[in-house]
Design a binder for these strands. Structure first.
Length: 425
RNA sequence: GGAGGAGUGGCAGAGCUGGUUGAAUGCACCGGUCUUGAAAACCGGCGUGCGUUAACGCGUACCGGGGGUUCGAAUCCCUCCUCCUCCGCCA
């Protein structure tokens, strides 16, 4: 959520950013509405405070009168105060109404984009920030897509997953599960080497937590909701891990805070269909190692690029063809100011699959989180939050299987061999 | 799940027969005096949000969250959450 004061100060910049996100003029008017509501809120606040002040003074007077035994006078004043009170209550109710409207308006305005974000409406307009440097593998027509390889070598059973739960819940087995576990451990080890503290967070979160990182209300329908207890299954480890810092006031020397965690991620993915959801391309449950950083505003973009490098290092070590995209305005997430996506080339499907998304949220999350730090002058300021997948497993597995296959089996990336205990499937 | 107890400022800990209590006191912290320096001692300061102000400041709200009673609530009532103790159940 953007800070109200910032909206007023930077309204032109914010409106430009909304245009980049492909917002219509009528929707952009929301910014003016928010500013207007904020003015009304301030006016009402002043009025309410005044009335309350009056009320407080009279109440004190009544107290004093009682104390000094002037009961009649006290009672007389008491009846007079009632009207004033009703008046103040009414104004306060009005103010609360305005606050709610303002809140709604603020919640529906996405983060302000970084200046480097290209304009555009959909993924077609994303900028290739770093293209693949080699020649894309050509496996020929006999190459099998990963779901066929998975069946051939008994690695993943999609039918069993569907039987037990439903489609989009793959069941890994044998060397398939082993590969899964090897990747998780490898990614966590690499994150640890890069200085990230490992976290095992809860997989269900409450409403407040989901709100603080911006999943609510924006992605309400994307999360599985346990209504009985009003808890949500996490769509990413970002949610519980970033919330670790909720409400904290940091010292400048605490930066950077680097956290990582492996969790399964649950996503309803309502509305997806076709080739997009075939095999591991898009599933309701997948595993992911997430990296989260809390940074000083002056350094958050350097940090973003370090995180990009970290992810890049992982993909290089796995010997997968990858490219990096800078997301355009229309494709950048609601909460993000700048997002880099990583895609790996799935050689049998002959398509790029997204495996990581690295974002700087600037103060958009920390405003909701109330995550601040004391600057040199002792003033409290909002910190910047960042996160990235490092990495999301399902599609990585799809690519490893497809890209490394030949007639006799599938070769495992060298960095995984020690974790796996075998070189080939 | 059942019974009981508790949640107050960075921490500890008063207040809880409703009325200068935003909150005693101690510790911690910051500034000063003293000292060659430090410690001790002494003096002063020391929460946050919102509104207002050029600023000093002033107003308002906040004593786990929400709601209620009252002219007035940290103090009374309801409800939810969390923690502790005991019982039950259980990986």
């Amino acid at each position: 959520m953007l800070e109200v004061n910032k909206i007023e100060e930077q309204q032109e910049r914010i409106k430009e950013s909304l245009k980049k996100r492909n917002w219509s003029a009528t929707k952009i008017a929301l910014v003016d509405e928010a500013i207007d509501l904020n003015h009304r809120r301030k006016d009402l606040q002043t009025e309410v405070d005044q009335k309350k002040s009056e009320l407080n003074n009279l109440s004190k007077e009544i107290g004093n009168l009682f104390k000094s035994g002037k009961k009649e006078e006290a009672n007389e004043l008491r009846s007079k105060v009632s009207d004033l009170k009703a008046d103040a209550d009414e104004k306060e109710a009005e103010m609360n109404q305005v606050i709610n409207l303002l809140e709604d308006a603020l919640l529906s305005i996405p983060n302000t984009l970084h200046e480097s974000v290209p304009a555009g409406s959909s993924e077609e307009d994303n900028e290739v920030y770093k293209d693949y440097e080699g020649i894309l593998p050509n496996m020929g027509d006999q190459a099998l897509p990963h779901w066929e390889l998975a069946e051939k070598y008994n690695l993943i059973d999609f039918k069993l997953g569907a039987l037990i739960t439903g489609s989009g819940f793959p069941l890994f087995r044998g060397k398939g599960s082993r590969l899964q576990r090897a990747l998780i451990t490898y990614f966590l080890d690499e994150a640890a080497k890069a200085g990230f503290e490992e976290i095992v967070p809860p997989l269900l979160v409450n409403e407040e937590t989901a709100r603080a990182t911006g999943q609510l209300p924006d992605k309400e329908g994307q999360m599985y909701h346990v209504t009985e207890d009003n808890l949500y299954l996490i769509p990413t480890a970002e949610v519980p891990i970033t919330n670790i810092l909720r409400g904290q006031i940091l010292e400048e020397t605490d930066f950077p805070i680097k956290l990582t965690g492996y969790t399964p991620c649950f996503r309803r993915e309502a509305g997806s269909y076709g080739a997009d959801v075939k095999g591991l391309n898009r599933v309701h449950q997948f595993d992911k190692v997430e990296i989260v950083q809390i940074e000083h505003p002056d350094r958050s973009y350097d940090t973003l690029h370090q995180m990009v490098e970290h992810v890049e290092g992982l993909l290089k070590s796995l010997e997968l063809p990858y490219r990096i995209l800078r997301l355009c305005g229309g494709d950048t997430g609601f909460t993000s100011a700048l997002t880099y996506d990583f895609e790996v080339y799935s050689a049998a499907q002959k398509r790029w699959l997204e495996v990581s998304s690295v974002s700087n949220f600037e103060t958009f999350q920390s405003n909701r989180l109330k995550l601040r730090y004391k600057d040199n002058e002792g003033k409290k300021r909002l910190a910047h939050t960042l996160n990235g997948s490092a990495l999301a497993l399902a599609r990585i597995i799809a690519c490893i299987l497809e890209n490394n296959q030949n007639e006799t089996g599938i070769k495992m990336p060298a960095v995984l061999v020690d974790y796996l205990g075998f070189e080939r499937i």
